[in-house]
Each structure stands twice: as structure tokens, then as C-alpha cells.
Simulated scan of single mutants.
Amino acid sequence: MDVLSDVLAAMRVGRPYAGRVRCGAPWGVRFPSDDSACCHVVLQGTCRLVLPDGPPLALGVGDVLLTAPGHGHALADRSGGPLVDFGPARAGDSLVTELDLPGQGAATDLLCVRYRLDRLRTHPLLAELPPVIHLPARLGRRSALRTIVDLLGEELWAPGIGTDALLASLMDMLLLYALRTWIDERPGGATTGLAVALTDPAIAIALQHLHHRPEHLWTVSELAALSGTARATFAKRFTSIVGQAPLAYLTWWRMTTAARLLHRTDVSLQAVVERCGSDSRHAFADAFGRE
């Protein structure tokens, strides 16, 4: 079981929504502090990330920027200039719309993708996501991520047969590759959260088993044995990194999975109960209610 894909599938709400922003200096676009993660790609020109606190961050062609939910920010040609809210006009069910900010100065072309996430039940591993992940373009590095950026640019510049389907897949891939790149290149010193959990051998193995078989009646001893560590050591390390004890995380994940199945599918209630490792609808209802 791919835990990262599973986590994102559980937290995602609806389809991603993107705006292609064409700007001429002076310009500035404000992104609100809401339940959306944003992924920005500089397709042409340069700009700055402007945060409520902290110095601005310069961005160039090919740079990818990922911002976590709940962190408002702005992109602009300079700090201190006027800002407009990000809200390009949508045409029907189109995944990508246009936002033009005409100006006489230097031109910048951006792709800004918003992924709405369920903040009512934020996944413990996503809770430690940093406010901003900056992946600058580097020659000879991050070839897969660069390929996704190039393909997105081509589809935007010259749309053709199947563009809508391609863009939907490419936008999903952009988020996954950005997170994967950050996990692979994360700076040292982190002790908790998504990147640590998915790269710690013992914890990653335990998470894979929990996600693959949530209906199984897991014990801490069984998970520790699969992870190749002593029970007490495993329990302490899992709780420290994930933010919940192993069986508490299992219950949380079961109820999150149940909510997703009930909300998004026509699976019978009995099938949901069994998927969550319960043999009683009443016991399931009590656990679901507590969560």
C-alpha cells in the first residue's frame, strides 16, 4: 500500500482547480488562508512569494512552490505593491481558467493549482507539513518533476485532443512529485511528520500494513514484530513520529476510511463495518460517533 497516495486520497475534496495567471508588472495576486494546498509553477518570468511575516522569496522559471492549507500568501512582481484576490472566472467544469493582469512592465506567466483538503480531519502526517516548500529549478536535478512541469506548460500553451484529462492527471502528479521530491530532499533535523514517517523503515512498514489491512485486529506486538523492533521501542517511536499511538492511529484511520466510503461510494453499511474491523454495527456506530 502506498501510504502517501492513500493519505492524499482520503484528505482530498473534489478535483483540483487551476488558474493560468498572465501578468505584466506591476502586479500581485493574493491567495487566502483556507482549506486549500496550493502548488505554483513559474512558467515564464520571475516573481516573489510574499508572506504575512518573513522576508520575500524570489522565484524563477521552472520553480515549484507548495504551500500548506491555512497559510495565506501572495505572489507579486515586488513586495508592497497592490494585490488582487485569486479568483479567475471559471467556464463550466474547466479545470484551468485564465486570469490576466495587464501591465506595461516585465511579463510573468504562472500556473497556480489549488487542492482542497479536508481540514476537519487533518491527517496527523499532513499536520507537520511546513507552510512553504520551495523546489527551485536546478539543471540535472529533479528530472521527473521537471518533466511534469514541461508537460503542463505544453498542454497550456497548445491544448489539443484529451487536454482536460491530461491536465487533471498532470495536476495530481505535480502534487505527488512535489511532495516526493521534498521527502527525498528534506533537510536534516526533522523528527516528526510525513517525511520522517515515510522514510523511517520501522514506521513506514507499520503504516503500510495498517493502510493495507485496516480490518485486521492488529496488536502493537504484531506491528512491532513486522517492523523488526521491540514492542516498547516501536510504540514509543511510532507515537513520537506520527503523533498518535499505533492503535489510536488505527482507529482514526478506520473511521476516516469509513467516512470516505459512506460519503463517496454506494458501498453497503455492512461492508463499511467489515472494512473497519468490526463485527457489530452498534460497536461501529459507537466508535464512529466518538470520532
Rank of each mutant, 00 (worst) to 15 (best):
G193N: 13
G193R: 14
L170Y: 10
R186Y: 06
G153H: 04
L198E: 09
I183W: 00
W182G: 05
A195S: 14
W157G: 13
E155L: 01
R186F: 07
L198I: 12
E185K: 04
L166D: 05
A195V: 04
L167G: 10
E155C: 10
A195Y: 02
L167Y: 02
M171Y: 02
T192S: 08
T192Y: 01
P187V: 09
M173I: 00
T181S: 09
L166N: 14
E155Y: 02
D164W: 00
L170G: 12
L152H: 14
P159K: 15
S169Q: 12
A178F: 02
L152F: 12
L176M: 10
M173Y: 02
M171L: 09
T199S: 14
L166S: 14
A190I: 04
T199L: 01
L175H: 11
D172W: 04
G189P: 00
D200Q: 09
G153P: 03
M173S: 13
I183M: 12
P159N: 13
P159Q: 12
Y177K: 09
G160N: 05
D172N: 15
L156R: 14
V196I: 14
A165Q: 13
P201S: 09
W157D: 14
P159E: 08
I203F: 00
L156P: 03
G160A: 06
L170M: 06
D184H: 08
G162C: 03
G162V: 01
G189S: 05
A202D: 04
A197M: 04
T181M: 00
L170R: 15
R186W: 03
T199C: 07
E154D: 10
A178S: 15
L152W: 10
L174S: 07
D172L: 08
T181A: 11
A168K: 11
L156F: 09
G162W: 01
G160T: 07
Y177T: 12
L152R: 15
S169I: 00
M171W: 01
R186A: 15
A195E: 10
G188M: 04
E154S: 11
A178T: 15
A158F: 08
G189W: 02
R180I: 01
G162T: 03
M171V: 00
M171G: 03
E154M: 06
V196D: 03
D164L: 00
E155V: 03
T181I: 00
L174G: 09
D184A: 15
T191F: 02
L156T: 14
A202G: 08
L174D: 05
D200V: 05
L175S: 07
D184M: 04
I203T: 14
A190M: 06
V196F: 04
L151H: 11
A202S: 14
L151R: 15
L174V: 01
L194M: 05
E155Q: 13
L176E: 11
G153M: 01
D172F: 01
D200M: 02
L175Y: 06
D172H: 15
A202L: 02
P201M: 04
G193Q: 12
R180A: 07
P159T: 14
L167A: 10
A165N: 07
R180H: 07
I183S: 03
L176W: 01
D184C: 08
I203A: 03
I183R: 11
T191E: 15
T181V: 08
G153S: 02
E185A: 14
A190S: 11
I161Y: 02
W157L: 13
T181Q: 03
L176A: 12
R180D: 06
G160P: 02
P201E: 07
